[in-house]
Amino acid sequence: MPVKKFVVGNFDDEAVLFPAVKKVRRAGYKIHDVFTPFPIHGLDKELGLRDTSLHVAGFIYGITGTATAVGFITWALTLDWALNFGGKPYFSLPAWIPITFELTVLFASVGMVLTFCWLCQLAPFVKKDHFNPRSTDDTFVMALECTAKTNEQDAINFLNSVGAKDVSVQYRETGWWLGRYDKDNMKFEKRELAH
């Protein structure tokens, strides 16, 4: 993933952040993302993000789990190693429902967690650039991506006018790489020094 140029503004109040997002979008700036210490209801709509498809993925995983359970138990208990349990037929669906249910839930939940981590690029040793480390503590951080047409100074002035603090221009890696925050933070620091 490439290194890009951003204009970054910090907000310390969500009541300022919401109108700011609206104004910035109306002014035509491209918001790369907004980083907040906690989830904020309605911010996704304000940013114009579409609804997540995670639940569709969950449904597919669930169906896969159902099919796996029914398929495997059917094969095992009717074809491969048919056993007689208390005179019941080999194909005894009621007895299999609990396992089918469990496997559906297991596939759906584990699949959704992994998909969520994949979409958020979260994993052990996956490292990403931060615009402002305080976005995990008490600051709402808005990053505007600079395109070829963006005038930096205009963007900085605009962010200041909508209530941002400590507005800065930053060069950041948008992708992820493998590394450790306690050992390898060279890349992080280098970028700050380089520009």
Partner: peptide
């Protein structure tokens, strides 16, 4: 519905 049915079906 299923819990009521299944245990009775199983115990027979």
């Amino acid at each position: 519905w299923f819990a009521q049915l299944m245990l009775i079906w199983y115990a027979n």
